[in-house]
Design a binder for these strands. Sequence first.
DNA 1: GTTCTCATTTAGAATTATTCTAAATCTTGA
DNA 2: TCAAGATTTAGAATAATTCTAAATGAGAAC
Lengths: 155, 155
Amino acid sequence: MKDSGRNQAERRLTERLGADGLRATPQREHVYEVLLQKRDHPTAEEVFIRAKRSKPGISMATVYNCLDALVHCGLVRQVQLDRGATRFCPNMREHGHFYCNGCDTVFDVDLPKKPEPRIVLPHGFKAEHFEVAIHGTCPDCAKTKVKPRTAKRVK
Amino acid sequence: MKDSGRNQAERRLTERLGADGLRATPQREHVYEVLLQKRDHPTAEEVFIRAKRSKPGISMATVYNCLDALVHCGLVRQVQLDRGATRFCPNMREHGHFYCNGCDTVFDVDLPKKPEPRIVLPHGFKAEHFEVAIHGTCPDCAKTKVKPRTAKRVK
DNA sequence: GTTCTCATTTAGAATTATTCTAAATCTTGA
DNA sequence: TCAAGATTTAGAATAATTCTAAATGAGAAC
């Protein structure tokens, strides 16, 4: 049947949320689907807008709640790249993020195979998760040569 | 003489700002000094508070302006770790940041020597800068076992 | 030195992003 | 069916950052 992928995603969602003592509600499922549908690292606001298209009653507070729940149970990563809003990424594969200073777009980038730069933490530190962010210029912006800056707002 | 270190820092500041067409103003020097004095990854607000101690007239807008100028000219890095305020770090040596989910403290961590896992970017992408952030639990918090969470706000 | 121009600073308003609150609704298990 | 607790909701509140316009300051041109 044509949406077995969707059903699978839903099962996983219920499972993961459950493991954290959380319920798989229609809103949480919907927010998760929104993230899976267009993987362009949307902000909470953007998720809200998309979620409203097929679920007009959903509220911003719920979107934040759902996103938090999804992050909490390990189905979604939150990505902090610039001074703006947090972005969300349902790709849990190990990967980094390339942030284009020119157009603010975020691209997933592969990290070297069995990489984990093998960072040695001082004694007693327990790592749970790591993020690699690369800032630079994407091909399009490199061509058009606009906004060649690192920090925002300084002319 | 006892403050040659400071003079050196000031020379570098003037140089770097100048290279970007910016002036080395008393406020910019002061904000830079504040960052150098206590390298605990303060937020703009914290920098503002510290800056005011010896320069009561300085304004928040100026602190943001100065921080932007310093980031822009490559003397300071901004670090985005959680949903809270941006933090600032005057350590330009290559290093990563460990963020403790328990106490929100940020620690500098060394990256493997000639590391750069050699991330291969797709054709046309130009990397300017990269950040490695590790989220986890610091030794103190590991002992006391408080707040064992990844995302905020989900009970 | 005076004047012009432009950079910078400042206070405060405005905006943006996120969190909080309390009431309504829903779910689940007894 | 009911009680307890989880979730959602709207809207208020807070936090973080940016914007605005006026005042100040500094260097270039006279």
